[in-house]
Design a protein around this nucleic acid. Structure first.
Lengths: 228, 228
DNA sequence: ACCTGAACACCGTTCAAGT
DNA sequence: ACCTGAACACCGTTCAAGT
């Protein structure tokens, strides 16, 4: 019996790059990066592992394609009437939320240097930097600083495996970290101990945004200094 | 014949956590992260894979320990007479160079959230932030911004697999990227195309430092704003 | 053209057996 | 206490064979 006929019987669509990437995203979001296996993916798609290789060259491309889909969906769509500062903050927050919802892109974004997903982010950041009035030679540095900061936070979020959904686990987690920090060697970790207390009512999102604002302030300061 | 006697005959030291971590660093530096295998590591140590598990709980701990050794060696040792700005820049540069020499710590640093290596960096950055005169409640944000930026750049350096040692390959690589950027869709990638030319004489280290300066400028601006 | 699934060449990790 | 190395349970990827 032909494959097509069997699929039709089970009311399944034929295999396609798009369906494969979609299924991969589903697995990544639910089971995490370590859970994405060609065998698991093949099972979910009701086929064998080899079939996937007809549509996708390997795991790297698959992860890249998955990242591209998610990033493309979050990078665009800013408010047209917003100021450059507001637009930058909004873009950064959209990326933060995307990484929060799909922690694996935090790892993946950093791994695709000149690749499409990172370039998409860089492009949008660069446009805002330009709109901020940064002179041409300083734009690359400003956009890169924003990008690298976002990538850094993204990597942290991915590493922290934000899997602990509930708010309770969240505060529990922060309490544990705060307690650990407070118990560090007083001489070796004087600063860390000193700020440990602040960690208990810590809002990742707000903290992320505060970092963006710091860089934006630096951009503004450098720009104004040049003018005078 | 006892193991000890055999080792003595071959003039080998006995296995130890320290020797294992040292050997792992050697492999990581030469063959890269993918080249570090328990079988390869065991061969280099003239033993079986299982022996390593007596001294180290697993691969994660091994990578963590290797990162800790390298980071501990680079985080300390700043000039005592330097200003906080200079000290911050020097610390950041030391980290940049360490990541450049051992690209794998770029990946690894990001993966150890509350772990020792990251905390060591955070602590040193925090001390400089404090020395910069940043008020207490703003210190955490400032230190985090610096840290996340450094982690972001580190991840990029690791991804770019700076393996291409020679200077020639370096400029060749930049030329290729610049050419790729210049050929992007003019509407979709207007900004990236515009800055592509700057990429040809691009100094990673200087660019990294410029980003640090941007954040330092932001920190100074925020601090002074609060004062007035 | 597209799919199947056994097979290959690897992993990290375990563990009975040795010294 | 420490080491050995075969064995286990996985990987990503390939490929002859099918439809």
């Amino acid at each position: 019996m032909a494959t097509r006929a069997r699929r039709a019987e089970r009311r399944e669509e034929p295999l396609s790059r798009e369906r494969i990437v979609e299924a991969a995203i589903g697995i990544l979001d639910t089971v995490g990066e370590a859970g994405l296996t060609f065998r698991v993916l093949a099972e979910r798609l009701a086929t064998g592992p080899g079939a996937i290789y007809w549509h996708v060259s390997g795991k790297d491309e698959l992860l890249g394609a998955a990242t591209e889909v998610v990033v493309a969906g979050t990078v665009l769509g800013g408010d047209a009437g917003a100021s450059p500062q507001e637009a930058t903050r909004a873009l950064a927050l959209r990326l933060f939320d995307a990484i929060d919802a799909h922690p694996w892109i935090g790892t993946q974004l950093a791994r695709s240097p000149g690749q499409s997903p990172m370039l998409q982010v860089f492009e949008q950041l660069g446009r805002q930097v330009q709109a901020l009035g940064v002179p041409r030679p300083a734009r690359f540095t400003a956009a890169s600083a924003l990008l690298n900061y976002i990538l850094g936070v993204g990597g942290q979020n991915a590493a922290n495996a934000h899997g602990q959904e509930s708010e309770k686990n969240r505060t529990e987690f922060l309490d544990t970290v705060a307690a650990t920090w407070a118990s560090l060697d007083p001489e070796e970790y004087a600063f860390t101990r000193d700020v440990a207390e602040q960690l208990r009512d810590h809002d990742d999102r707000a903290e992320f945004l505060a970092g963006i604002d710091l860089i934006l302030a630096g951009i503004a300061a450098s720009r104004d200094e040049r003018r005078s």
